[in-house]
Each structure stands twice: as structure tokens, then as C-alpha cells.
Amino acid sequence: MTDDVPDRPPAGGLVQALDVPRNAAIGAVVGLGLAVVAYLFRVLELFGPFAGTREYPVLGAEGWFLILAFVLASSTALLVATVLTLVSAYRLSQTL
């Protein structure tokens, strides 16, 4: 037996065929836009004060909502990029 690992085919062609860079960019823009809107509505209280507003001792309310906005942006970006890539894969499978 040999310890040689067989060569793998390059994955760059698949990434380009599925438009992954474009899908990731669209996902990042959508996620960032949603997070900015949610953060502004919550921190600036554009609909008025929220019921049950509390004091947050460590970071303050704005700090915690900024962290939550980052989580919202990253998860939304991942979801949008995944859905767009699945749509690209489906369309590519239909043409074969």
C-alpha cells in the first residue's frame, strides 16, 4: 500500500458555476441592510419607546443591540447566500 493521496479535482470551477461570490456579496448587503434598519428602529425608537425598556449595566442598551445587530446581519447573510446558491445549483442541474 502506498501513502499517496489521490489528487482532487479543483473546486474553483464549481464555486464559479454556482456564482458563490456573487451570492455571498448579495447576502452580505441584505444582511447588513436589515441589521442597520433593525438597529436604528430599536435604538432611535422610531416607533416610540418600547414597552418594558430596561437598563443594561455592562454595555448599555446600545451596545447589546449592536451585538444583536451583528448576529442578525451575519445569520441573514448566510441564509440569503445559501438560498441563492441552492437556486443556482437547481438551475445548473436543469441545464445538464
Rank of each mutant, 00 (worst) to 15 (best):
G60F: 07
F41N: 05
W64I: 07
E45K: 10
A38P: 04
R42M: 02
F70Y: 13
P10N: 08
L72P: 04
V15H: 01
F65I: 04
A25G: 12
L44K: 08
P9G: 09
Y56M: 04
V15N: 06
V5R: 14
L59A: 09
L44T: 06
T2N: 14
Q94W: 09
V30F: 02
V20N: 04
L44E: 15
I67Q: 15
S88M: 12
L79R: 09
L68K: 11
G13Y: 13
G63D: 11
L59W: 12
A69H: 06
V30W: 06
Q94N: 08
T76A: 12
L18F: 08
A81R: 00
F47T: 12
L18Y: 10
P21E: 02
L66Y: 09
E55Y: 07
D3N: 15
V36L: 11
A38L: 13
S93R: 15
A38R: 06
P9M: 06
D3Y: 13
L92C: 04
T95L: 13
V87K: 06
P57Q: 00
L78V: 02
L78I: 12
E62F: 12
D19K: 06
V36W: 15
F65Q: 06
F41T: 04
A61N: 13
A35E: 01
V83F: 15
N23I: 02
P10F: 01
P21G: 05
L66K: 07
Q16G: 03
F65C: 00
E62H: 12
L84A: 04
G52S: 01
V15Q: 06
G48N: 00
L78Q: 08
P21C: 09
V29R: 03
D3H: 15
M1Q: 04
T82P: 10
S75T: 08
L84P: 09
L66I: 07
G12M: 09
S74L: 14
P49R: 10
A35V: 02
Y39G: 06
P10T: 05
L84H: 06
L40N: 13
T76F: 05
A35I: 01
A17I: 01
T76R: 03
V30P: 10
I26K: 01
T53P: 00
P57D: 14
V15D: 13
R91A: 14
E55S: 11
D3C: 05
E62C: 00
G13K: 08
G33V: 00
A61P: 05
